[in-house]
Design a protein around this nucleic acid. Structure first.
Lengths: 225, 225
DNA sequence: CGGAATCCTCTTCGATACTG
DNA sequence: CAGTATCGAAGAGGATTCCG
């Protein structure tokens, strides 16, 4: 009944004792992107099963990586969120995202995609040099998800949820987001074809994607052809 | 017989599809610290089992993270080393090391410790501000292992193996290294008690440990009491 | 509906023994 | 020393059920 451990006096092994099991770091990624309900995890982690998810959430809570709290009625559902200690794993998750990007290729039919996962892609692809003098908040409506990206001081802060006073609101479905993200279509072309709606200045929409790595190096980065 | 995958179009999941299995990142850590033989892995990864190690090495080779080559006779043994692609995982491993350090506590009797693991601890604890104007190479003989740390331009480059022209050679056993590393004893006290031998200027030996975080913040960092 | 518990099958892991 | 073979134990996956 004792928990499995590597039994090594090694910081890496100690970390993996806690977050190295299957699904664990993916669950951490989810809560790093914003508070989530049990159902959200199930939707975003295909095949995990309720029992295993339940077990993982308990382990993560015991390790002080997440906490859960009940929302007041009428919501009456539990919400899981990251702790300060868990926030320290951001560097690890971001490192995995960076290293994993070239393995993405094009999405396969049986692969699940959730819009929130684009948050780390934004961080990964953001080019500070292209953002000089820009201070804007971009809001995205992708399928039923709302995301935002605050750009400021040549940094980007993408998070889940609606922005307070967005400079522009950009609406598209996830298929279009994937086509743009994998450089199958230019952002402005997608807009002209009616696949993207923009509330606000269309120039802001165009500008946002200029902040990310361009198609040429981007295609190499996600390893297309 | 198809490999288990998360089936998510997500860079983090893709990375974990490749390096997320049990033992895998620890093996990557080992080769990041220097080329290793089969036996070395077995000695450093208690309980892995030869079959699983063999399997992991094959998987890592297939993923272009490590490569193996035969040493010329009379050595005639296989050596596994990191590839350029695998080197990209350094950020992930270092992130895990950083996050895992506060979980270390004091070494327990049944926990294995290998001197090479101190390499990432050096990187983690190095304080650039304390290294102004220092350009030296420190060589360490710990038990039967030889390590080195090159300090230059307020950076530290710890690696496995003997240095070319070390400024100082420091010899101790791993118990002493652990005592110093966990702030149970001051480096100079350990030297005075004959637990550390120094070839070269003893001031250099003292200086080196000044480059790492001091006891006060260090104890907090590894979460002792 | 959110989440925990049960049962069953399958895969992976871990330890030992064995071979080149 | 470098692996392969074998087998019992543990963990994962999927369906279903139960409880609030």
């Amino acid at each position: 009944m004792s928990k499995r451990t590597y039994n090594m006096y090694c910081a890496i092994a100690k970390a993996l004792d806690v977050v190295g099991e299957r699904w664990t770091l993916l669950i951490v990624h989810e809560v790093l992107s914003g508070p989530k309900r049990f159902k959200d995890f199930l939707d975003h982690l295909p095949g995990i099963g309720t029992n295993l998810l339940s077990k993982r959430l308990k382990e993560l809570e015991q390790a002080d990586i997440i906490r859960h709290r009940k929302l007041p009625p009428p919501a009456s559902s539990e919400v899981y969120e990251i702790t300060e200690h868990g926030q320290g794993l951001e560097e690890v998750v971001l490192g995995l995202a960076r290293w994993g990007t070239p393995l993405l290729g094009l999405p396969k039919p049986d692969e699940l995609f959730c819009p929130v996962w684009a948050l780390y892609a934004m961080k990964d692809r953001f080019v500070p040099e292209n953002a000089k003098g820009i201070s804007k908040t971009y809001e995205f409506h992708i399928d039923d998800d709302i995301l935002q990206a605050r750009v400021e001081n040549q940094q980007i802060f993408p998070t889940q949820g609606a922005a307070w006073k967005p400079d522009v609101v950009i609406t598209m479905d996830s298929a279009t987001l994937l086509d743009i993200g994998t450089y199958q279509i230019e952002p402005m072309d997608a807009h002209q074809q009616g696949r993207v709606q923009v509330q606000g200045d269309v120039a802001d929409y165009d500008e946002f994607f200029q902040l990310l790595v361009d198609a040429e190096s981007g295609i190499e980065r996600i390893n297309l052809k």
